[in-house]
Nucleic acid binder design. Structure first.
Lengths: 132, 132
DNA sequence: CGGAATCCTATTTGATACTG
DNA sequence: CAGTATCAAATAGGATTCCG
């Protein structure tokens, strides 16, 4: 019986970031701020929306979001991973295949993002109507 | 979760302008991003949470959020005002009294913020449990 | 009281080139 | 394919001082 390449979960190389440092005292006590914060990256909502459909490879995400740079995509994926929203599966093939998928925690967030999307649509509409 | 109408997805002809040199503070075509963006300021969730109880004066907000500087509070209030979330009422008294209150748009946002708060609480709990 | 003006630092993102 | 490394630019936020 041949073995399928089994995914090895997570833990990207530990280049722990120059980008994420201690944010501030309010963070620990404020769930709203914590939630906003995990979505704060410029491309994170888009990234999550891409891989919610199905697990995606690094290059797939780049194709879907052509304006993000490789560096930024890497950083934001690492942060999402550190925040427990994304899992990085490495398949030991040649060439190597890496897939990113959402955790259940992130799937529950995507429901909140639906609400955010609805509110954002109203917001954009009202601003357009009042000649923003 | 529905799909983000974010930069270039799928098969549609690319009518999205390639003007990527200047990405404004608001991503016009992405409601989720727009919603995140109006809450993005470091103190905006806290400010809204303060005002939602009842209209508040500038100095009241400062007392409630002692770590915010006068400058930053002013800037973030102006941004919230420009975004149509906050109304600034000036009473011609001596000394002048200024009160800030939420618009209906902001009140509908506060419901979404409740969802964000619940998700944020789960997020913080899971991270605490896994030795973040 | 309720800010505005100015200066300054830290964080975030992008562009470009290179690698195992 | 899936990233790193480096540099540069844009932004956000804080500290301080001054004002009607």
């Amino acid at each position: 019986m041949s073995e399928l390449p089994s995914p090895v979960s997570g833990t990207a190389p530990d280049t722990l970031d120059p980008h994420r440092k201690h944010i501030g005292p309010l963070e620990k006590e404020c769930p709203v701020w914590a939630a906003i914060n995990v979505l704060r990256g410029r491309w994170k909502p888009s990234i999550l929306c891409e891989i919610v459909k199905q697990p995606q490879r690094y290059s797939d995400i780049r194709k879907a979001l052509p304006h993000i740079s490789a560096q930024t995509l890497t950083v934001q994926l690492r942060e999402l991973e550190a925040d427990g929203l994304v899992v990085r599966d490495v398949y030991a093939e040649v060439p190597v295949r890496v897939e990113y998928r959402l955790t259940p925690l992130a799937e529950s967030l995507s429901e909140v993002m639906d609400e955010l999307e609805q509110w954002g649509a109203r917001y954009l509409q009202e601003r357009a109507g009042s000649g923003h």
